[in-house]
Computed example of a mutant assay.
Amino acid sequence: MELRIKDLTKLYDDKLILDIEDFYLPEKTFLGIIGPNGAGKSTLAKIVANIEDASTGEVLYNGSSFTAELSKDMTLVFQKPYLLLTTVYHNISYPLQLRKVAKEEIHRRVMEIMEEMEILHLKDQKAWTLSGGEAQKVALARGLILKPSLLVLDEFTANIDPASMLILEKSIQNYHAKYSPTIIMVTHNLQQVQRLCSHLAYMNKGEIVESGEVDEIILNSQNPITQKFISGEIVV
């Protein structure tokens, strides 16, 4: 899915949180967004995913404004997973049930993605008994099972164990390789961006300061603020 952000602002109590004049993201791009705390990264992710309104401006999806139909082709995965108070299997299958997918197809797809994410043994376990890493795997599986063409990840591997993080990353890599969606990943982890992303945007004080291919920005940044963040002079 192709994205265009135009004249986008967001204010909270008269404080300017976002101010993005023009930003274009081609379809199939895997974009990592980095920057210090308070830069507006998560706010931008929520606006792109249409769970928060902009104060002014717009986000265009394949040249069009957001519609209810478009929402079926988008998924947002938060840092804190929000799961239904039921089994792992039901959590993952629920979006397909809402779309009235045949039971046999639901079962096949749920079992397939649970096996890929190494949570097949949790099939009948209740969501509230899961560890943080397990819950995040379930949340991601529930999002990927819809095969969205736009996937927004907001600190989706923060505060989970390294083994779970690697499984989540591998699932994202496999999904991008197989279906070529547009992915936007908000993260503080520059190494994670280098492992997963094709493009990088650095945000500071609500603005996209610099963007481009990952290696281009990391090795040859043209902006002093970006350079300081990459070198560790600006703490998150």
Rank of each mutant, 00 (worst) to 15 (best):
E115M: 09
P26W: 12
A68C: 08
Q136T: 03
L44F: 05
M165Q: 14
V236F: 05
Q97K: 15
V235Q: 03
L219R: 15
N220I: 00
L70K: 15
E2D: 15
E21D: 15
V186N: 00
N220H: 11
G40A: 04
T129Q: 15
D161A: 12
L196F: 03
S164R: 05
T67I: 09
L60K: 02
E27F: 00
V152L: 11
P95Q: 08
N91S: 08
Q192V: 07
K80M: 10
D22M: 11
D215R: 14
Q97E: 15
I5F: 15
M117Q: 02
S171F: 07
I51L: 09
P224R: 01
Q227I: 00
S65D: 02
H121R: 06
E207F: 02
S171R: 01
Q79L: 13
E115Q: 14
E210D: 07
K147P: 00
T157L: 09
S180L: 14
F229N: 04
S211W: 14
G35I: 12
G143R: 09
Q192G: 04
K72C: 02
V236I: 08
I208V: 05
V236L: 07
I145W: 08
K147I: 09
D73Y: 07
G32F: 10
Y202E: 04
M203W: 01
Y179S: 04
N220D: 09
V152K: 06
Y61N: 12
P148K: 00
R4L: 15
G40H: 01
F78G: 01
Y24M: 10
G32D: 11
D19L: 04
K170H: 13
N189G: 00
S55N: 00
D154A: 06
F66K: 06
A135D: 07
I34L: 10
L168D: 03
L96N: 11
D7E: 15
Y89W: 14
N189R: 03
D22I: 05
K178A: 14
S211F: 14
Q227C: 01
L96C: 11
S149G: 07
Y61A: 13
H176E: 13
K170D: 15
K10W: 10
T187I: 08
R108T: 02
T226I: 01
F23Y: 15
L44M: 12
K6Y: 13
T157G: 02
S42V: 03
E216W: 04
A68L: 14
D19G: 01
P26Q: 08
L196C: 02
L85G: 09
E2W: 11
V101M: 10
F156V: 13
S65G: 11
F23C: 12
Y82H: 09
T56K: 14
S211L: 09
E104M: 02
E27T: 05
Q79W: 12
L144T: 00
L85E: 14
E112W: 10
M117P: 05
N50L: 06
I234T: 00
V59K: 08
S198M: 03
P81R: 08
